[in-house]
Nucleic acid binder design. Structure first.
Lengths: 237, 237
DNA sequence: GAGTGGTCTAGACCACCAT
DNA sequence: TGGTGGTCTAGACCACTCT
């Protein structure tokens, strides 16, 4: 099977919630009802419900049932590992990408550290994102050329992840991210439509493949008024 | 049982990883070995491993095993639902909390919306956090007084969560958060040691109990140079 | 008491990795 | 080929909520 049973049950229920077929503040069918409905074991149903739980679609209440949460109040989580192209598709805004720089060179001391490499080449890709006619984001990607070979400027103009996951068949698995605020350099001020701002919100990400290979380090700098990060978190003891 | 078996196995392995007893870039014992070690079924072991996976401690590799990831590279996630007091304890820094305002009043139209209330009272608590001798954070909490009764200024000076979870016995379950950058008002500039900054990083959170009751809306405003948010994210298809 | 979710167990088959 | 994790099933007992 390409996608597992519990994955497809998760998607099925999630879509119903998103479409409003199952309204917020109502309860899902009980686990035993879902077993019959999807002809699955309880464990399989529970795995699907766990995904809904982790992603903030439902809240389970002992002795009562699975309550559907308001999802439209909060527009969609930017947390998680998403490429800019995927993000764009959920935003429905006018976005243009300019590839400002595309180079390949032997790894520098700093990138040895950031990418955990010993030797080899690094691609550096600088892209400027124009949203609604304003240049508001600079993305700088550093990629390990041994892991991601054959990258071209055309891939950068389209989507790095489409090349990595589609063409190369690699699987992006997880990322560590850090958000800080940094002063804008003179060059950055020239590249972006900055108005009077002197600061940029910088999202640094380290992205890993399924086999835990670190292949990408990214700094995404956003004009402060155009930055927004949404998160859903559960308390774990 | 107070804590479940898989929870305690999770904590046991997590502590070993954090202590360095199980070094990064080595593999955990296999699931069947762990079954014997902890005298548990495979499902129980897998639940414990799932928690390690979700929290970024390990990466599972089909046919190979569970690889321990570098956790010290990234200092601890501020994502998740944590009270400021808990956060402080992980930071080991000098922190002083000043309760600047503590009032109770009938719900306003804006808080009706933010807290989803029809009627009743709201506590408003404004606290200033002084770190290493500098006032750098303003936390403004709005709490539904019907859900959290009997709050006092003393609780605010200590820890709201300690009162809510300890004294009242309620369970904080999940939160929706949003991070944006906002201009600092004149009042905020006076309350904080702002230097030349005109902007504040604002973390808005909506916090819910186990039964999905929204009880708190918080705006936490940070001086830009003192703000840092760390996140771990897995790609979910 | 009946129904709900939470935990734990045991067994089975598969896909993937190493050798 | 033998070991690893990924999925699925079936059955059991418990704690909690509602009426």
């Amino acid at each position: 099977m390409r996608t597992s049973k519990y994955q497809s049950i998760f998607q099925h229920i999630r879509d119903k919630i998103l479409n409003g077929d199952i309204p917020a503040n109502t309860y899902l069918p009980s686990e035993s009802e879902l077993q019959q409905q999807f002809n699955a074991s309880r464990d399989t149903i529970r795995k699907a419900l766990d995904l809904l739980l982790q992603n903030g679609y439902i809240q389970k209440e002992k002795g009562k049932g699975s309550l559907v949460l308001d999802t439209d109040k909060i527009s969609f989580p930017i947390s998680g590992v998403m490429s800019f192209k995927e993000l764009k598709e959920t935003m429905h805004e006018d976005v243009i990408t300019h590839v400002h720089k595309f180079v390949k060179y032997p790894v520098t001391p700093r990138m040895k550290k950031e990418l955990g490499m010993d030797e080899g080449d690094v691609y550096e890709v600088v892209r400027i994102r124009e949203i609604d006619g304003k240049k508001v984001i600079i993305d700088t990607d550093y990629l390990n050329a041994q892991v991601i070979p054959g990258l071209t400027k055309e891939h950068a103009a389209n989507s790095l992840y489409e090349y990595i996951e589609g063409t190369l068949g690699l699987k992006v698995s997880f990322a560590k991210k850090e958000i800080v605020v940094v002063p804008a350099s003179e060059e950055e001020k020239e590249l972006l439509d900055m108005y009077e701002y002197d600061l940029l919100v910088c999202v640094k990400s380290y992205t890993y493949l399924e086999d835990a290979t670190l292949f990408q380090y990214t700094e995404s700098k956003h004009r402060p008024d155009k930055f927004r990060f949404v998160d859903f978190a559960r308390r774990t003891v």
